[in-house]
Design a protein around this nucleic acid. Structure first.
Lengths: 340, 340
DNA sequence: CAGACCTGCGCAAACGTTTGTGCAAAACCG
DNA sequence: CGGTTTTGCACAAACGTTTGCGCAGGTCTG
């Protein structure tokens, strides 16, 4: 029933050895034109396709790279995958997809599966929960090439691709200040995320440069859930010294915060301006999107991470020659209004 | 350098044969407790992980299923993947991800790669461009289990998982009519998509049932690009008999169309109501989201498609016993206003 | 015309597993 | 205690490739 045709079958029908067929298919010079053509003809006729599995087993490779990230449905990560898939397909490499759902145990389990699968390399963006990195070190101990991106844990000797969020926060804050805003709040993410610290530093630097005071009352942290964001935004608005602009950790936070503003009767981007870090593709559809967004180039991140990984796999980069790509974010200022 | 430890290595160190090690690891009854424990102990110590590649080669499987879809970044498809990945991970099966980018040639190429990779099965949602299905038939000829989902081409003898969009359109239209709308427009997708025809049928049926006239002037088709949508919406609004409600092909169309309404000074969902098919997770963040959305349960679609595929692979469903799951959509009516 | 070289192909090992078969030695049975 | 059963393991083949090596027969060279 299930008769996948193999090199052996072609060899049998042509009364030659499997090795001859293999070489003929690779146009090996030591195979006569006559045999070569016969093999190719029969292979075409039988619709022979080589088994990449067998080939890779022989080569000591799998032709698979593991892609581990928190949530596919987050647009940022979809775009990263997009970049990875593009390059991987070009290089005939399979992308095996895994989600940690931001859970540590799942992430750990995934890395074990990947090691067992003998993947040629791994692209990893760690879960929010991940504090300890023993499981990642174990992957490295197995000599599996690893590129970390976006959410990068400290103290791991792996290649990295990230976006300079400090600079993003700096430029966003500066832009707000230059537009005349004086009371710029920061609605940041949790301490545990390095990304929060980066934003914080950029924000502070910009304030200082612009000669604005740093007020702790204007700096809030949310765990990125809606209730927390609402709570913190309420605190900001109920203060006597209400902010006239807010820099938020990401678009979801911005949107939640904007809802709160509306409940105070404030007109977004008029009474209070918003600038955010881009996660969502459809800010263009909002009636009052953030005035500006820090674009993090997720596609580029994926593309470059894949590029480094493939180069390591192909021996073009020594595994010990650790790469650290830091992409520059871009402050995208929205049009005043969509034109139709 | 690269010394992945294998069964052979354990065998060598323990002075037993590889087959004994293999059986010991599987707790085969014919292996003595003493040997078994020794093998397990050494395997743990050396952090041995079995090579799934070798195991699968032996079994005539790959443990990989191919997932082919138009665009990962479309939220609908991300959610589908989400459902697939969940079940696949549970079953120790790798999900290999490929995007056609809605291009026929790419889709064709992907299917060839998948056949060459000897994947255990394929999940496919075809590209917009795909008119001819020869490449899909070829996959079936190779006895590779196939489950089609969402965008399903006709005349292919494969398993199917889809959402009953006719019913969705029917209920959406009915809901609008019951709310008192009398001039309900349909801003549909292109002819080529079966999904467009389904929506059309449901829309018509509902109109007839509600005793409303079918007016061709109220039925428009867009190729789903913004300019087309804007054009067609303009046509609807510039007509003397302007619609008081619009059923749109999807959320993107709805959002584009709403922008046009605003340029006419109309207040969305007050002067003109919108109901759409859900693609986007964040309608909750819009100030004027569609009043209702037809939820297509993408996660469920992915989950069920994967379930069927895995059952076919595991022989629990005969390949010829073609499954056709039709999920019921759900009309989700939004709260009047978000409460904070 | 003998030695060297080239041409064209087959043999067999290897990649890391699993598994059917074989074969001793030990344990059991009457 | 002889025969049967059980126990414990090794051997080897297989999955589908690739590739080093060997070996004929032919062709060239001096």
């Amino acid at each position: 029933m299930k008769d996948v045709i193999t090199i052996k079958e072609i060899a049998r029908q042509l009364h030659v050895s499997p090795s001859t067929v293999s070489r003929a298919l690779q146009n090996h010079p030591r195979i006569s034109a006559h045999t070569r053509d016969a093999v190719h003809a029969l292979a075409d006729q039988l619709k022979y396709l080589p088994s990449t599995t067998a080939r890779n087993l022989q080569r000591g490779r799998t032709g698979v790279i593991g892609m581990v990230l928190p949530e596919i449905r987050e647009n940022f990560f979809s775009e990263v995958i997009n970049g990875v898939e593009e390059l991987a397909f070009e290089h005939q490499v399979t992308v095996a997809l895994y989600q940690s759902h931001d859970r540590f145990d799942r992430e750990k389990q995934i890395l074990t599966v990947l090691a067992s699968n003998r993947v040629d390399g791994v692209l990893l963006s760690v879960a929010k929960e991940t504090q300890q990195t023993h499981h990642i070190q174990e992957l490295l101990d197995r000599q599996i090439p690893l590129v970390l991106f976006d959410r990068i844990p400290p103290h791991i000797a792996a290649h990295r691709v990230e976006c300079n969020m400090e600079k993003g926060a700096y430029e966003a804050t500066k832009w707000l200040a230059r537009r005349g805003h004086r009371r710029i709040a920061l609605l940041n993410g949790p301490h545990a995320l390095i990304a929060s610290e980066e934003r914080y530093r950029g924000y502070i630097t910009a304030l200082v440069e612009e000669g604005l005071p740093v007020e702790n009352a204007l700096i809030k942290r949310s765990d990125l859930t809606t209730p927390e964001t609402v709570l913190k935004m309420n605190q900001l608005l109920s203060s006597p010294t209400r902010p006239d602009a807010v820099l938020t950790f990401n678009d979801y936070v911005a949107l939640d915060a904007m809802q709160v503003c509306r409940s105070y009767g404030l007109v977004v981007n008029q009474d209070i301006s918003f600038v955010s870090f881009a996660n969502l593709p459809l800010n263009t559809y909002l009636e009052h999107p953030p005035l500006a967004s820090v674009e993090q180039h997720p596609y580029q991140i994926g593309f470059m991470a894949a590029e480094i990984l493939l180069n390591v796999i192909n021996g073009k980069i020594a595994p010990t020659d650790l790469q650290n790509v830091i992409l520059e974010p871009e402050l995208v200022v929205r049009e005043q209004s969509a034109v139709f």
